[in-house]
């Protein structure tokens, strides 16, 4: 039980990363591959946040005087993930726009069929 207590966040984060990786490796539909990449990205963000966590820690904001600095979680991973989420949305939109163009060009989103076709 203590094992779960210690590592549950790592297990969750890497679970998401592996689910995403499995989708990317196995599925043939391009939309599903993009969804898999998105799930992987969520897992990476969760992993970064959980690395910075401190047992019983508070958010690193001095909003009231009674918050003590010693119990704050690490702000650096949070700052990285904050920007990574918004960039992830933009990159996801870019990937979807490429999928739209591919569909218009080939008439299919199946990656195997796209590889077979030579214009």
């Amino acid at each position: 039980m203590s094992f779960l207590n210690h590592y549950i966040y790592y297990i969750g984060a890497f679970g998401l990363i592996f689910i995403g990786l499995y989708i990317v490796l196995v599925k043939h539909n391009l939309i599903k591959v993009i969804i898999g990449l998105s799930i992987m990205e969520t897992g990476v963000n969760l992993f970064l946040i959980s690395i910075g966590y401190i047992k019983g820690g508070t958010a690193p904001i001095f909003s009231t005087p009674e918050i003590e600095a010693a119990r704050m979680v690490d702000p650096v991973p949070q700052a990285l993930v904050l920007t990574a989420i918004v960039i992830g949305v933009a990159v996801l939109a870019l990937a979807l726009s490429l999928a739209i163009r591919l569909y218009q060009h080939y008439g299919t989103l199946n990656l195997r069929k796209i590889k077979e076709q030579r214009w």
Binding site: Y7, I51, A69, P75, V76
Partner: peptide, 23 residues
């Protein structure tokens, strides 16, 4: 590799510096 990294302990010195000196 992750089994060697304990969960929930402070890891970076730079984060501690930002908290102490940031305000």
């Amino acid at each position: 590799s992750l089994a060697k990294i304990p969960f929930g302990t402070p890891k970076t010195k730079v984060g501690r510096y930002y908290i102490d000196k940031g305000v």
